[in-house]
Amino acid sequence: MRLLGFGILKGMAVTLENFVRSYFDRDRRHHLFTKEYAWEPGAPAEVLPARADTTVTAHSRNFPILLHDGADPMGGIRCVACQICERECPPQCIYIEKDYDEQGKYIKRPAIFDIDLSVCMSCQICVEVCPFDAIVMDSQFELSTANRFGGLLQHRDQLLKSNEYYHRIHPEEARARDDRMAQEKAEKEAKQAAADAAKKKAAEAKAAAEIAAEKSKPEPSAPTAGGAA
């Protein structure tokens, strides 16, 4: 049995070590870990975003944005207002209305695309369910506003960001997405080409068969021809 207090002295040695090492620890990673934002000195380089701006790290997600290709936001908007994300959104923070032209014909883009950031919980479900790669997660976090009700309701034009912006904030993820889209597009085109070729072939074959039939069966009163007419 030892004197009361030895365990306490042991603990005090630990705290004293931390106190002293906080001044002398060279890499300042173990004994003084406070950092203000990820881009402050001392943040590991691999998590830093390409451009500081107000992005936390290259991996963080915050709130959704809409992507567009090219320079013109509405010209290159990827969203076709299919409303899958609106249906799937767990906290129901997305509101979409389809856009129609003067004739009342549905043109594939949203007239209204609102996200209420005060409701959104950054879960990324909308990104996963979107079949058009139109919605991705932003990492902008400085969103405070003086207006409690309208200020956090983001509209279509505020949400629209270019694909280049996406590449800047999430380089790795954006590259992977572009690769996959290109691959899908290529596959689709190949499929289309194959389908076209097959169609063409079928048409040719049909034509050839018809010619052959014509040759073998000279009677003009074919019932199929009559039916077609």
């Binding site: 705290t15 004293l16 931390n18 106190f19 906080s22 001044y23 004994h31 003084l32 870990f33 406070t34």
Partner: peptide, 10 residues
């Protein structure tokens, strides 16, 4: 300050 340094803060 001292408490902060003991606790690895600034």
């Amino acid at each position: 300050k001292i408490l902060a340094r003991i606790q690895n803060r600034i």
